[in-house]
């Protein structure tokens, strides 16, 4: 009897979920009036790159599949209420796509988390990847990189009221949160900090907001995004203690595509789009951009 009643209750919840098709559209995340505008990109419709198998395949299919992060505000972010992507990494991906001859409608976004990036690129799940992807030699064994388009550095995010954490030298004995299995963790351990790890940065930030950890650590870009997303509550220390050159990850042997992407990055850095994109995204945190790095063509 009792179970039957429980089931009836559960079913009504399910039914409610199904019926709840009446809902709001639009977004609560809309930019405030007067905020810097995102640049727009001219689609290079006549572009051809027949020497790149990835490009040829994407062109034939009429869509370009780009891997990105979904949970990094103002960097690689998916606005669930509107089904759109935004952020600095997303802008970089869009400007490159435009130069490769793809309209925004032709981009097929795919969320790929840190641990699966190499697999997704080498397995051909995505055409290229833009999402806080640090260039290093280990990764160059399985994928190749265009860029760097930004040089981030590991930094600390703390509550605005915090005064005793001033940089990497003051975290001894403090509890610092990051995402499981990231290199940031090793560095904190060697500096004498206590570490806790979750599988998303939002979980870490939540722990920071509830005072359960003293700081969150990872690339300053990611931290700036969270600071901008929780206005007035958090601050980024601003003394990076590592160098993380971000690249666009793509297939290991596709030199033609790599060169084309490098050209595209260069053009948008030179015409001011890069700066505009930063100001309208991560710039909202109040922190200035790092200087534009020189490309590493190989």
């Amino acid at each position: 009897m009792r179970t039957r009643r429980t089931i009836a209750a559960a079913m009504s919840v399910l039914a409610l979920t199904a019926v709840a098709a009446c809902g709001k559209s639009g977004s609560p995340n809309a930019a405030p009036p007067g905020a810097p505008q995102l640049p727009t990109y001219q689609v290079n419709t006549g572009f051809k790159l027949d020497s790149s198998p990835t490009w040829v395949k994407a062109k034939q299919a009429g869509k370009l599949t780009i891997g990105a992060k979904a949970d990094q505000p103002f960097l690689g972010f998916e606005d669930l209420t509107t089904n759109t992507r935004n952020g600095f990494d997303i802008e970089i991906a869009k400007m490159v796509a435009a130069d490769l001859g793809f309209t925004p409608d032709q981009i097929n976004w795919k969320t790929i988390v840190t641990a699966n990036r190499e697999t997704a690129i080498s397995g051909g799940q995505i055409d290229y990847y833009v999402g806080t992807y640090t260039i290093n030699d280990e990764r160059k064994k399985s994928v190749s990189f265009a860029g760097p388009y930004y040089v981030a550095g590991q930094d600390l995010l703390v509550l605005k009221s915090n005064t005793d954490i001033t940089g990497s030298d003051s975290i001894k004995g403090k509890t610092v949160c990051s995402v499981a299995g990231s290199t940031s963790i090793d560095r904190i351990n060697s500096l004498g900090g206590k570490t806790v790890t979750y599988d998303t940065y939002a979980q870490c930030v939540d722990k920071l907001l509830t005072n359960e950890v003293d700081a969150v650590t990872t690339d300053d870009t990611i931290l700036k995004g969270f600071a901008a997303k929780n206005p007035g509550k958090l601050k980024v220390i601003g003394k990076p203690f590592s160098q993380e050159p971000y690249g666009i990850g793509l297939g290991k042997d596709d030199k033609a595509l790599r060169d084309a992407i490098n050209n595209s990055i260069k053009a948008h850095e030179d015409n001011g789009d890069w700066k505009k994109a930063y100001d309208a995204t991560l710039g909202l945190s109040g922190s200035a951009a790092a200087p534009i790095p020189t490309l590493d063509r190989y």
Partner: peptide
């Protein structure tokens, strides 16, 4: 392991990274 306990799954993630 996904919730901040450094047990075997967590170790696997670290080694994989």
């Amino acid at each position: 392991g996904a919730f901040s306990v450094p047990e075997l799954y967590n170790v696997q993630q670290t080694l994989s990274d």
